[in-house]
């Protein structure tokens, strides 16, 4: 599995990382090396094996539906840029909501 420059661009796009200034070919090479190493898993037979996605599996009581207000001013004060108690971003042109 070779991680090509195009694939690096595609992954960087998904991850919203600007990698243009970096040594993209070195990154591609390092990722290829790691991913190649991972192909060792191809030889493992996992038919009928359940995946383990969680560290702890225990049934426990769920949260009660009770309101507990938080000092929201603290959150807004650690915000990068705000305006009239809103977070602000450059204009979004397309698509309300996902």
């Amino acid at each position: 599995m070779k991680i090509t420059g195009d694939l690096v661009d595609k992954i960087a796009g998904l991850a919203h990382l600007d990698v243009t200034k970096k040594n993209k070919s070195l990154l591609a090479e390092q990722l290829t090396q790691i991913v190649e190493h991972m192909r060792v898993l191809d030889q493992v037979d996992v038919s009928n094996v359940e995946p383990m996605f969680h560290g702890c599996i225990e049934t426990k009581p769920l949260r009660k539906d009770e309101v507990a207000p938080f000092e929201h001013e603290l959150i807004m004060s650690s915000a990068t840029v705000t305006q009239d108690n809103y977070f602000t971003v450059p204009s979004i042109i397309d698509g309300e909501n996902e």
């Binding site: 009239d84 809103y86 977070f87 602000t88 971003v89 450059p90 204009s91 979004i92 309300e96």
Partner: peptide
């Protein structure tokens, strides 16, 4: 998200 003249605002 709401939008005003110089950007978008997030609530």
């Amino acid at each position: 998200n709401t939008h005003n003249y110089d950007g978008s605002l997030v609530d």
